[in-house]
């Protein structure tokens, strides 16, 4: 177990290093931020001073090693645009994204498990066919269009829900959150829904396929031959086995939602990390983009490790041990 974690740790560091190289040089190649940062009326001397202060006069490899050295001591740089350390800038936006993502993952799980089980266990019934057809639609519609349609329907036509922003927030556990005010919750509904739909339909399909396959297994027939009630067979024998692929998807999707809820945050002007990333790319705010990708990588590495640990908890045949995989 210990050697397993040690090995994973070394792998993680290698991944982070590789990503840092790719991102740093890619962002360098996008364009020169100085044109956007310097006001048009600034003098040549002011311009040169700014270039020097931001370290943009150094060759690119020297800039990279300066970044790497700083990163090792926990400093991922300072935003060109905002003038504050990027880590605190990004982490400051994290709660808004996190509450959105958590809420949508919970919604997706709560909705998809019963729907998927029903569709998988009664594959020929009419409701199942409707559910499965619905998943295709849910999966095919692009996120930005869905978001705008939700706004159109619930905000513009029906006037039930607000179109954008976080609404009224309160401070809980040292973070701003919309979860505890009515206004905040109203603002959360549409973006949550928009984020939850693709994952819900993905999980419905996964669970339905898993349940349909599990019912044909010998151990399910054997359980029936033992006189086990249908309810218990579904809960203990079928659900338990199909949780494994579901955990994988929840893990991967959780990571990608935190990192790339960009579209939904943009459509709903949700002040989270995704919106920060888009704004920073437009403004060529290099340190923010690089740090964002690095933190995202760290998040994925962490979530993957967590998923592996959960596997071992769910499936007794999985043992976490060292050795190359």
């Amino acid at each position: 177990m210990t050697s397993y974690f040690l090995q994973r740790l070394i792998q993680s560091i290698a991944v982070l290093l590789a990503v840092s190289v790719v991102v740093f040089f890619a962002v360098y190649g996008i364009g020169d931020p100085i044109e956007l940062l310097v006001p048009p009326q600034a003098s040549a001397a002011e311009r040169l001073a700014l270039i020097k202060r931001l370290g943009l006069d150094q060759p690119v490899w020297s800039q990279y090693f300066t970044f790497l050295g700083n990163a090792l001591s926990g400093n991922l740089g300072t935003s060109f645009v905002h003038g504050v350390p990027v880590v605190s800038l990004i982490l400051g936006r994290l709660p808004a994204t996190l509450e959105l993502v958590l809420l949508s993952m919970i919604t997706a799980t709560v909705v998809s498990v019963p729907l998927g089980l029903y569709a998988g266990l009664n594959p020929d019934s009419r409701p199942s066919r409707i559910i499965m057809a619905g998943t295709v639609i849910g999966f095919s519609l692009p996120s930005f269009w869905k978001g705008m349609m939700l706004v159109l329907l619930f905000s513009v036509w029906l006037g039930w829900l607000p179109t954008a922003g976080r609404g009224e927030t309160v401070t809980a556990l040292g973070m701003q959150t919309s979860l505890f005010t009515l206004d905040g919750l109203k603002h959360l509904i549409l973006p949550t829904l928009n984020l939850a739909i693709p994952n819900t339909v993905l999980m419905v399909r996964l669970i339905a396929a898993g349940a349909a396959e599990a019912t044909t297994q010998d151990y399910v027939k054997f359980a029936r031959a033992k006189g086990i009630s249908r309810r218990r067979i579904v809960r203990r024998h079928i659900l338990r086995t199909i949780l494994i692929p579901v955990v994988t998807v929840v893990g991967i999707e959780f990571g990608s939602l935190v990192a790339f809820s960009t579209i939904t945050e943009t459509v709903f002007s949700w002040p989270g990390m995704g919106k920060l990333l888009i704004d920073s790319i437009y403004q060529l705010d290099r340190p923010v983009v690089v740090a964002y990708v690095m933190l995202t990588t760290l998040l994925f590495v962490g979530v993957n490790l967590l998923v592996d640990v959960l596997y071992a908890a769910l499936d007794p045949r999985v043992k976490l041990s060292g050795g190359m995989t």
Binding site: Y219, A225, G227, R236, T241, P316
Partner: peptide, 23 residues
């Protein structure tokens, strides 16, 4: 259901697949 496993029990052909691997 009340009869199966109680008054009439069964044993299947392939012992590798009759037991649930996760219980």
């Amino acid at each position: 259901r009340a009869l199966r496993g109680n008054r009439i029990a069964m044993v299947f052909q392939d012992p590798l697949s009759t037991l649930n691997p996760v219980l």
